[in-house]
Amino acid sequence: MATKLTPKELAKNVERLTPGHRLCAGCGASIIVRQMLAAIDEPVVIANATGCLEVATTIYPYTAWRVPWIHNAFENAASTISGVEAAYRSMVRQGKIPEQNIKFLAFGGDGGTYDIGLQALSGAVERGHQFLYVCYDNGAYMNTGIQRSSATPLGAHTTTSPAGKVVPGKQQHRKDLTAIMAAHNIPYVAQAAPSKWRDLMEKTRKAVNCGGAAFMNVLSSCNRGWRHNTDETIEITQLAVDCCYWPLFEVENGEWRLSYTPKEKRPVEDWLKRQGRFRHLFRPENRYLIDVMQKEVDRRWEHLLRLCGAA
C-alpha cells in the first residue's frame, strides 16, 4: 500500500538524498527532490542534467544519492534516461533481469530544460518512454552565475540581462514550457511548487504511474539569483503561486485541471518586491514593466482558466 502523504508517515521511509550535498543554504531544488522522492514508494533510477543539483550533489568522491543516479551532460538528461529505460525494458522483456517496477526520473534546471535540452526532451516524450522529467525552474542559469534563460521573468536582472542605464533587465516574458509539453499530448503534464507540498507529491505519484512519459515543471526558488533571504524560500515560492505568475495545474490525458485557486489573487508586485532581481523595476522610469508583467500574468491566467473550464 502506498505510504500516506503525511510528513510523519513519509519520514518513516529512507531518505534518498543525504545531507552533505553542497547546494546553497535555502536552495529550493533539494526541497523539491526530497518531497518528490518521498512521494514515490517504488524504486527510482535518476538521470540529472548538468546544473546546480547535479554538481552540488556529486562532487567526486562523494555522492548524496542513495538511489542509482547518472549524469551525462547538460542538454541530454531526457535522452539519457530514455536509454536507461529502453535498456530496462529490453532486458526485462528478454528475461535477463527481473521486473522491479522501477520509476525513471530525470531532473534538469530551466537552462537544461527550456533551452539547451528542449529538443532531447521533446524527442524522448514523443517516443513514449516511461519516465518523469522534472524541471526545477529557478528562472536562470544559476549554476554558472545567474545568466538569463527563456524561463527568466520579464524585467529580471541577471548577469546577461542586467538592469542597466538603458535596458531594464530581461526584455522578454517567460516561455510557457508547461504548455509546450502539454502540446505533446503525453499522458501527464503538471505545474507545481514545493510550497504546496501535498499537491506536488500527489502530482508526482500521478506522473510516475501514468504509464507513459510525464513532465512536471516545479518552481524552485534560488535565493542567490532571486535575491532574498535564505529562510524566505517557501514563502516567496507561494507568493508566485498566489499572484498567479506560477499557477498550479495539471493536464491529464489532455484534460486541463486547475489544482489551486488563490483565495485572493495577489498583485504580481507583491511577489516582485520581495526579490532583489526586480528592485530596479520600482524606479519610476521602469514601473511600466510591472504593469506589462501584470497584464501578461492576467492574460495567461485567464487563458488557463478557460483551458481548465473554470473561466
Binding site: 547518472i70 534516461i81 530514455s82 529502453a86 532531447a120
Partner: peptide, 16 residues
C-alpha cells in the same frame, strides 16, 4: 531525434 541523443541514449543504456 538527433545523433546527440543517439549517443546520449547509448550512454544511459550502457550504464544500465
Amino acid at each position: 531525434e538527433s545523433e546527440h541523443s543517439a549517443m546520449s541514449a547509448c550512454v544511459g543504456a550502457s550504464a544500465a
